[in-house]
Computed example of a mutant assay.
Amino acid sequence: MKKQLTRMIAYIAIAACFVTGIGGQIAYASPSISTNAYATALIDVQSGRILYSRNGDVATRIASLTKIMTAIVAIENGNLSDKVKVSTRAAGKEGSSIYLRAGEEMTLSNLLYGLMLRSGNDAATAIAEHVGGSEAGFVFLMNQKASELGLEHTQFRNPHGLDEEGHYSSANDLAILTAYALKNKIFAEIVKTDHKKAPNPNEKWHYSWRNKNKMLRMYEGADGVKTGYTKKAFRCLVSSATRNGQQLVAVTLNDGDDWRDHRNLLDWGFKHYPHSRLAEVEQAVSGSSLVYGANYNYPLEKDELDKVQASVTLIDPSSPHYALGERGRMQFFLEGEPIGSVPLYEKGSMRLKLNKRAATEESFNQFKQLEKREHSIFFKIVDWLQK
Protein backbone atom coordinates (compact mmCIF):
# COMPACT_ATOMS: atom_id res chain seq x y z
CA MET A 1 0.00 0.00 0.00
CA LYS A 2 2.79 2.44 0.93
CA LYS A 3 4.64 1.68 -2.32
CA GLN A 4 1.51 2.64 -4.24
CA LEU A 5 1.18 5.84 -2.23
CA THR A 6 4.84 6.68 -2.80
CA ARG A 7 4.28 6.30 -6.54
CA MET A 8 1.20 8.52 -6.24
CA ILE A 9 3.29 11.21 -4.51
CA ALA A 10 5.67 11.26 -7.44
CA TYR A 11 2.86 11.79 -9.94
CA ILE A 12 1.26 14.53 -7.84
CA ALA A 13 4.57 16.33 -7.40
CA ILE A 14 5.15 16.44 -11.17
CA ALA A 15 2.01 18.56 -11.53
CA ALA A 16 2.37 20.53 -8.32
CA CYS A 17 5.90 21.95 -8.60
CA PHE A 18 6.07 24.17 -11.65
CA VAL A 19 6.31 27.92 -12.18
CA THR A 20 4.86 30.18 -9.51
CA GLY A 21 3.66 33.62 -10.60
CA ILE A 22 2.88 36.40 -8.15
CA GLY A 23 0.37 38.93 -9.46
CA GLY A 24 -0.65 42.31 -8.19
CA GLN A 25 2.20 44.63 -9.10
CA ILE A 26 1.10 47.74 -10.99
CA ALA A 27 3.22 49.19 -13.79
CA TYR A 28 3.98 52.90 -13.94
CA ALA A 29 7.05 53.44 -16.12
CA SER A 30 5.56 53.39 -19.63
CA PRO A 31 4.28 56.37 -21.67
CA SER A 32 0.88 57.57 -20.51
CA ILE A 33 -2.45 56.61 -22.04
CA SER A 34 -5.96 57.85 -21.35
CA THR A 35 -9.53 56.69 -21.94
CA ASN A 36 -13.01 58.16 -21.73
CA ALA A 37 -13.91 55.77 -18.92
CA TYR A 38 -14.59 56.60 -15.29
CA ALA A 39 -12.47 53.58 -14.29
CA THR A 40 -9.98 51.53 -16.31
CA ALA A 41 -7.64 48.57 -15.85
CA LEU A 42 -5.34 46.57 -18.12
CA ILE A 43 -3.85 43.27 -16.94
CA ASP A 44 -1.46 40.64 -18.28
CA VAL A 45 -3.32 37.34 -17.88
CA GLN A 46 -0.40 34.96 -17.28
CA SER A 47 1.45 37.01 -14.68
CA GLY A 48 -1.47 38.91 -13.18
CA ARG A 49 0.45 42.18 -13.48
CA ILE A 50 -1.77 45.24 -13.80
CA LEU A 51 -0.19 47.31 -16.56
CA TYR A 52 -2.47 50.34 -16.31
CA SER A 53 -5.09 51.50 -13.85
CA ARG A 54 -7.16 54.64 -13.36
CA ASN A 55 -9.68 54.74 -10.50
CA GLY A 56 -8.97 51.03 -10.51
CA ASP A 57 -9.97 50.35 -6.90
CA VAL A 58 -13.11 52.50 -6.86
CA ALA A 59 -16.19 50.36 -6.25
CA THR A 60 -18.87 51.11 -8.82
CA ARG A 61 -21.78 49.57 -10.72
CA ILE A 62 -20.73 46.95 -13.28
CA ALA A 63 -23.95 45.93 -15.07
CA SER A 64 -23.66 42.62 -16.96
CA LEU A 65 -19.93 42.30 -16.33
CA THR A 66 -21.36 40.53 -13.28
CA LYS A 67 -21.93 37.55 -15.58
CA ILE A 68 -18.18 36.86 -15.74
CA MET A 69 -18.42 35.72 -12.12
CA THR A 70 -21.74 33.97 -12.79
CA ALA A 71 -20.16 31.94 -15.57
CA ILE A 72 -16.99 30.85 -13.75
CA VAL A 73 -18.91 29.94 -10.57
CA ALA A 74 -21.36 27.86 -12.63
CA ILE A 75 -18.55 26.12 -14.53
CA GLU A 76 -16.68 25.27 -11.33
CA ASN A 77 -19.73 24.16 -9.32
CA GLY A 78 -22.15 22.79 -11.90
CA ASN A 79 -22.40 19.89 -14.35
CA LEU A 80 -22.41 21.25 -17.90
CA SER A 81 -24.52 18.37 -19.21
CA ASP A 82 -27.30 18.95 -16.65
CA LYS A 83 -30.73 19.79 -18.00
CA VAL A 84 -31.83 23.01 -16.32
CA LYS A 85 -35.58 23.58 -15.98
CA VAL A 86 -36.48 27.25 -16.40
CA SER A 87 -38.62 28.66 -13.60
CA THR A 88 -41.39 31.23 -14.06
CA ARG A 89 -39.20 33.70 -12.17
CA ALA A 90 -36.26 33.15 -14.52
CA ALA A 91 -38.38 33.36 -17.67
CA GLY A 92 -39.87 36.65 -16.51
CA LYS A 93 -36.61 38.37 -15.58
CA GLU A 94 -36.49 41.88 -17.00
CA GLY A 95 -33.77 43.31 -19.19
CA SER A 96 -31.69 41.53 -21.84
CA SER A 97 -32.98 38.05 -22.58
CA ILE A 98 -32.56 34.92 -24.68
CA TYR A 99 -36.37 34.49 -24.45
CA LEU A 100 -36.58 31.33 -22.40
CA ARG A 101 -40.04 30.01 -21.54
CA ALA A 102 -41.15 28.78 -18.13
CA GLY A 103 -40.88 24.99 -17.95
CA GLU A 104 -38.52 24.53 -20.88
CA GLU A 105 -35.24 22.69 -20.36
CA MET A 106 -31.81 23.59 -21.64
CA THR A 107 -28.38 22.21 -20.81
CA LEU A 108 -26.25 24.24 -18.45
CA SER A 109 -23.64 24.42 -21.19
CA ASN A 110 -26.01 26.08 -23.66
CA LEU A 111 -27.34 28.42 -20.98
CA LEU A 112 -23.79 29.62 -20.41
CA TYR A 113 -23.48 30.51 -24.10
CA GLY A 114 -26.78 32.41 -23.90
CA LEU A 115 -25.49 34.12 -20.76
CA MET A 116 -22.17 35.29 -22.21
CA LEU A 117 -23.00 35.87 -25.88
CA ARG A 118 -26.41 37.53 -25.52
CA SER A 119 -26.22 38.58 -21.85
CA GLY A 120 -29.47 36.79 -21.00
CA ASN A 121 -30.75 37.80 -17.58
CA ASP A 122 -33.21 34.92 -17.82
CA ALA A 123 -30.27 32.56 -18.41
CA ALA A 124 -28.40 34.05 -15.43
CA THR A 125 -31.36 33.47 -13.13
CA ALA A 126 -31.97 29.91 -14.37
CA ILE A 127 -28.27 29.09 -13.92
CA ALA A 128 -28.24 30.55 -10.41
CA GLU A 129 -31.34 28.68 -9.29
CA HIS A 130 -30.01 25.39 -10.65
CA VAL A 131 -26.39 25.55 -9.47
CA GLY A 132 -26.98 27.37 -6.18
CA GLY A 133 -30.33 25.82 -5.27
CA SER A 134 -31.71 29.35 -5.24
CA GLU A 135 -30.58 32.75 -6.47
CA ALA A 136 -29.50 33.64 -2.92
CA GLY A 137 -27.53 30.41 -2.63
CA PHE A 138 -25.72 31.15 -5.88
CA VAL A 139 -24.95 34.73 -4.87
CA PHE A 140 -23.34 33.31 -1.74
CA LEU A 141 -21.06 31.23 -3.98
CA MET A 142 -20.24 34.34 -6.04
CA ASN A 143 -19.18 36.32 -2.98
CA GLN A 144 -17.28 33.33 -1.63
CA LYS A 145 -15.30 33.18 -4.90
CA ALA A 146 -14.66 36.93 -4.77
CA SER A 147 -13.20 36.52 -1.27
CA GLU A 148 -11.08 33.56 -2.41
CA LEU A 149 -9.61 35.65 -5.25
CA GLY A 150 -8.91 38.60 -2.94
CA LEU A 151 -11.38 40.95 -4.65
CA GLU A 152 -11.58 43.57 -1.91
CA HIS A 153 -13.79 46.04 -3.76
CA THR A 154 -16.45 43.60 -4.95
CA GLN A 155 -19.83 42.53 -3.60
CA PHE A 156 -22.61 40.73 -5.46
CA ARG A 157 -26.34 40.91 -4.83
CA ASN A 158 -27.55 39.08 -7.96
CA PRO A 159 -26.21 36.90 -10.82
CA HIS A 160 -27.19 39.17 -13.73
CA GLY A 161 -26.00 42.70 -12.91
CA LEU A 162 -29.27 44.64 -12.90
CA ASP A 163 -28.82 47.73 -10.74
CA GLU A 164 -29.17 46.95 -7.04
CA GLU A 165 -27.79 48.72 -3.98
CA GLY A 166 -24.76 46.91 -2.58
CA HIS A 167 -23.93 45.29 -5.94
CA TYR A 168 -20.57 46.56 -7.18
CA SER A 169 -17.01 45.83 -8.22
CA SER A 170 -13.96 47.75 -9.45
CA ALA A 171 -11.92 47.83 -12.65
CA ASN A 172 -8.91 46.18 -10.98
CA ASP A 173 -11.05 43.47 -9.36
CA LEU A 174 -12.74 42.69 -12.68
CA ALA A 175 -9.34 42.48 -14.38
CA ILE A 176 -8.11 40.01 -11.74
CA LEU A 177 -11.34 37.99 -11.95
CA THR A 178 -11.23 37.81 -15.74
CA ALA A 179 -7.55 36.81 -15.81
CA TYR A 180 -8.46 33.97 -13.45
CA ALA A 181 -11.52 32.92 -15.47
CA LEU A 182 -9.65 32.89 -18.79
CA LYS A 183 -7.34 30.19 -17.45
CA ASN A 184 -10.39 27.92 -17.43
CA LYS A 185 -10.58 26.25 -20.85
CA ILE A 186 -14.40 26.07 -20.89
CA PHE A 187 -14.84 29.74 -19.98
CA ALA A 188 -12.24 30.79 -22.56
CA GLU A 189 -13.97 28.78 -25.30
CA ILE A 190 -17.39 30.28 -24.54
CA VAL A 191 -16.33 33.94 -24.48
CA LYS A 192 -14.38 33.76 -27.75
CA THR A 193 -17.34 32.21 -29.62
CA ASP A 194 -18.84 34.57 -32.20
CA HIS A 195 -21.97 32.56 -33.01
CA LYS A 196 -23.77 29.68 -31.29
CA LYS A 197 -26.85 27.61 -32.03
CA ALA A 198 -28.83 25.66 -29.43
CA PRO A 199 -31.89 23.39 -29.62
CA ASN A 200 -35.25 25.09 -29.08
CA PRO A 201 -37.88 22.71 -27.62
CA ASN A 202 -40.74 25.14 -28.34
CA GLU A 203 -40.15 25.89 -32.02
CA LYS A 204 -38.96 24.20 -35.21
CA TRP A 205 -36.02 26.62 -35.43
CA HIS A 206 -32.93 26.61 -33.22
CA TYR A 207 -31.83 29.38 -30.92
CA SER A 208 -29.16 31.37 -32.74
CA TRP A 209 -26.96 33.75 -30.76
CA ARG A 210 -24.46 36.26 -32.13
CA ASN A 211 -21.94 37.56 -29.61
CA LYS A 212 -22.62 41.18 -28.61
CA ASN A 213 -18.88 41.73 -28.14
CA LYS A 214 -17.88 43.52 -31.36
CA MET A 215 -14.19 43.39 -30.38
CA LEU A 216 -14.21 39.78 -31.62
CA ARG A 217 -14.84 41.11 -35.12
CA MET A 218 -12.88 44.36 -35.05
CA TYR A 219 -9.60 43.63 -33.27
CA GLU A 220 -6.86 41.22 -34.33
CA GLY A 221 -6.37 38.48 -31.75
CA ALA A 222 -9.53 39.33 -29.76
CA ASP A 223 -10.83 36.35 -27.74
CA GLY A 224 -13.40 37.71 -25.24
CA VAL A 225 -15.01 38.71 -22.94
CA LYS A 226 -18.24 40.61 -21.96
CA THR A 227 -20.30 43.72 -22.60
CA GLY A 228 -22.54 45.47 -20.09
CA TYR A 229 -25.02 48.33 -19.79
CA THR A 230 -27.65 49.67 -17.42
CA LYS A 231 -29.09 53.17 -17.05
CA LYS A 232 -27.06 53.69 -13.87
CA ALA A 233 -23.84 51.82 -14.75
CA PHE A 234 -23.73 53.12 -18.35
CA ARG A 235 -21.51 51.31 -20.88
CA CYS A 236 -19.13 48.73 -19.41
CA LEU A 237 -16.78 46.40 -21.26
CA VAL A 238 -14.20 43.70 -20.58
CA SER A 239 -12.20 42.59 -23.62
CA SER A 240 -9.28 40.23 -24.08
CA ALA A 241 -6.82 39.58 -26.89
CA THR A 242 -3.80 37.35 -27.51
CA ARG A 243 -0.75 38.24 -29.62
CA ASN A 244 2.60 36.46 -29.75
CA GLY A 245 1.53 34.17 -26.93
CA GLN A 246 0.66 37.06 -24.60
CA GLN A 247 -2.93 37.61 -23.46
CA LEU A 248 -4.16 40.94 -22.10
CA VAL A 249 -7.49 41.95 -20.56
CA ALA A 250 -8.86 45.51 -20.69
CA VAL A 251 -11.65 46.77 -18.43
CA THR A 252 -13.60 50.04 -18.74
CA LEU A 253 -16.52 51.18 -16.58
CA ASN A 254 -18.83 54.00 -17.67
CA ASP A 255 -17.15 54.62 -21.04
CA GLY A 256 -19.06 56.20 -23.92
CA ASP A 257 -16.33 55.32 -26.43
CA ASP A 258 -15.37 51.87 -25.20
CA TRP A 259 -14.69 50.10 -28.53
CA ARG A 260 -12.08 52.69 -29.50
CA ASP A 261 -10.62 52.85 -26.00
CA HIS A 262 -10.19 49.08 -25.82
CA ARG A 263 -8.38 48.94 -29.14
CA ASN A 264 -6.02 51.65 -27.92
CA LEU A 265 -5.51 50.05 -24.50
CA LEU A 266 -4.67 46.65 -25.93
CA ASP A 267 -2.36 48.12 -28.58
CA TRP A 268 -0.60 50.12 -25.87
CA GLY A 269 -0.15 47.07 -23.64
CA PHE A 270 1.24 44.83 -26.36
CA LYS A 271 3.62 47.58 -27.50
CA HIS A 272 5.00 48.74 -24.16
CA TYR A 273 4.79 45.58 -22.02
CA PRO A 274 5.67 42.54 -24.16
CA HIS A 275 6.68 39.33 -22.43
CA SER A 276 10.36 39.07 -21.55
CA ARG A 277 11.83 35.58 -21.05
CA LEU A 278 13.39 35.53 -17.58
CA ALA A 279 14.02 31.78 -17.42
CA GLU A 280 14.45 29.08 -20.04
CA VAL A 281 13.88 25.42 -19.19
CA GLU A 282 17.25 23.63 -18.85
CA GLN A 283 19.15 26.94 -18.92
CA ALA A 284 22.11 26.79 -16.52
CA VAL A 285 21.99 28.89 -13.36
CA SER A 286 25.18 30.93 -13.24
CA GLY A 287 27.67 29.76 -10.62
CA SER A 288 25.97 26.43 -9.90
CA SER A 289 25.30 22.97 -11.32
CA LEU A 290 21.55 23.64 -11.36
CA VAL A 291 19.27 24.45 -14.29
CA TYR A 292 15.86 26.09 -14.58
CA GLY A 293 12.95 23.67 -14.45
CA ALA A 294 10.53 25.74 -16.54
CA ASN A 295 10.17 28.69 -18.87
CA TYR A 296 9.12 31.94 -17.23
CA ASN A 297 7.88 35.09 -18.99
CA TYR A 298 6.94 38.42 -17.44
CA PRO A 299 5.58 41.64 -19.03
CA LEU A 300 8.24 44.33 -18.78
CA GLU A 301 8.61 47.85 -20.13
CA LYS A 302 11.93 48.24 -21.99
CA ASP A 303 13.60 50.16 -19.14
CA GLU A 304 12.51 47.62 -16.50
CA LEU A 305 14.52 44.61 -17.67
CA ASP A 306 17.68 45.91 -15.98
CA LYS A 307 15.74 46.32 -12.74
CA VAL A 308 14.88 42.62 -12.44
CA GLN A 309 16.84 40.81 -9.72
CA ALA A 310 17.01 37.11 -8.89
CA SER A 311 17.74 35.17 -5.74
CA VAL A 312 18.24 31.42 -5.19
CA THR A 313 16.72 29.57 -2.26
CA LEU A 314 18.06 26.03 -1.80
CA ILE A 315 15.85 23.22 -0.52
CA ASP A 316 16.69 21.32 2.66
CA PRO A 317 17.90 17.77 1.74
CA SER A 318 15.45 16.37 4.31
CA SER A 319 12.51 17.93 2.49
CA PRO A 320 10.16 15.70 0.47
CA HIS A 321 10.67 18.09 -2.46
CA TYR A 322 14.40 17.32 -2.39
CA ALA A 323 13.68 13.58 -2.51
CA LEU A 324 11.55 14.18 -5.59
CA GLY A 325 14.28 16.05 -7.47
CA GLU A 326 13.82 19.73 -6.71
CA ARG A 327 16.99 21.40 -5.46
CA GLY A 328 15.86 25.00 -5.07
CA ARG A 329 13.84 27.89 -6.46
CA MET A 330 14.89 31.00 -8.32
CA GLN A 331 12.85 33.94 -7.06
CA PHE A 332 12.54 36.98 -9.34
CA PHE A 333 12.05 40.54 -8.07
CA LEU A 334 11.22 43.84 -9.76
CA GLU A 335 12.29 46.87 -7.74
CA GLY A 336 12.26 44.74 -4.61
CA GLU A 337 8.80 43.24 -5.16
CA PRO A 338 8.52 39.47 -5.83
CA ILE A 339 7.06 38.70 -9.25
CA GLY A 340 7.51 34.93 -9.60
CA SER A 341 9.69 31.89 -9.06
CA VAL A 342 10.96 28.88 -11.00
CA PRO A 343 12.02 25.44 -9.64
CA LEU A 344 15.66 24.39 -10.02
CA TYR A 345 16.94 20.86 -10.75
CA GLU A 346 20.14 19.00 -11.42
CA LYS A 347 20.82 18.84 -15.13
CA GLY A 348 19.55 15.60 -16.68
CA SER A 349 17.22 14.70 -13.79
CA MET A 350 14.07 12.74 -14.60
CA ARG A 351 11.93 15.40 -12.97
CA LEU A 352 13.40 18.04 -15.28
CA LYS A 353 12.58 15.95 -18.36
CA LEU A 354 8.99 15.56 -17.22
CA ASN A 355 8.64 19.31 -16.59
CA LYS A 356 10.12 20.07 -19.99
CA ARG A 357 7.49 17.88 -21.69
CA ALA A 358 4.79 19.73 -19.75
CA ALA A 359 6.14 23.21 -20.48
CA THR A 360 3.33 24.33 -22.78
CA GLU A 361 0.98 27.24 -22.13
CA GLU A 362 -1.97 24.89 -21.69
CA SER A 363 -0.12 22.75 -19.17
CA PHE A 364 1.06 25.86 -17.34
CA ASN A 365 -2.51 27.04 -16.86
CA GLN A 366 -3.70 23.60 -15.75
CA PHE A 367 -0.84 23.25 -13.29
CA LYS A 368 -1.43 26.70 -11.82
CA GLN A 369 -5.09 25.88 -11.13
CA LEU A 370 -4.22 22.57 -9.46
CA GLU A 371 -1.11 23.70 -7.59
CA LYS A 372 -2.63 24.60 -4.21
CA ARG A 373 -4.88 21.55 -4.02
CA GLU A 374 -2.17 19.12 -5.11
CA HIS A 375 0.40 20.53 -2.69
CA SER A 376 -2.10 19.98 0.11
CA ILE A 377 -2.70 16.36 -0.93
CA PHE A 378 1.05 15.81 -1.31
CA PHE A 379 1.93 16.84 2.24
CA LYS A 380 -1.00 14.97 3.78
CA ILE A 381 0.30 11.75 2.20
CA VAL A 382 3.87 12.50 3.30
CA ASP A 383 2.67 13.03 6.88
CA TRP A 384 0.83 9.69 6.74
CA LEU A 385 3.94 7.86 5.46
CA GLN A 386 6.13 9.33 8.17
CA LYS A 387 3.86 8.15 10.99
Rank of each mutant, 00 (worst) to 15 (best):
K3P: 03
Y11P: 00
I12V: 15
A13C: 10
C17L: 10
G23Y: 03
G23S: 15
G24Y: 00
S32T: 14
S32M: 08
S34E: 15
A37T: 02
Y38S: 13
A39K: 03
D44G: 02
D44P: 01
S53I: 05
R54F: 13
A59K: 13
A59H: 08
A63P: 08
V73H: 05
V73M: 03
I75D: 02
I75Q: 03
E76W: 08
N77L: 06
N79E: 06
D82Q: 03
V86A: 05
S87V: 03
E105H: 04
M116F: 09
L117P: 00
L117M: 11
S119Q: 03
A126N: 02
I127G: 00
I127A: 01
I127L: 00
V131P: 02
L141E: 02
E164W: 05
E164D: 10
L174F: 02
A175W: 01
L182K: 09
K183Y: 01
N184D: 13
K185V: 09
I186F: 05
E189H: 14
T193W: 01
D194H: 11
H195V: 07
W205R: 13
Y207G: 00
K212V: 13
L216E: 03
M218H: 11
E220M: 05
A222I: 03
V225C: 10
K226A: 08
T227I: 08
T227Y: 05
T230E: 08
K232I: 04
K232A: 10
R235T: 07
G245H: 05
G245S: 07
V251D: 00
V251T: 03
T252H: 06
D255S: 10
W259L: 15
R260A: 08
H262K: 09
N264L: 12
W268P: 07
W268R: 11
H275T: 06
A279L: 04
S288A: 08
L290I: 07
V291Y: 06
N297A: 05
E301S: 08
L305T: 12
A310D: 06
L314M: 15
L314V: 13
P320M: 12
H321D: 12
Y322P: 02
G325D: 10
G328A: 11
G328P: 11
R329H: 13
Q331I: 11
Q331N: 15
E337K: 14
G340T: 01
E346W: 03
M350Y: 13
R351T: 11
N355L: 14
A358M: 15
A358H: 11
A359R: 12
E361V: 14
E362W: 13
E362N: 09
N365C: 10
Q366K: 15
Q366I: 13
Q366G: 04
K368C: 04
L370D: 05
L370I: 08
E374V: 10
I381F: 07
Q386F: 03
Q386T: 15
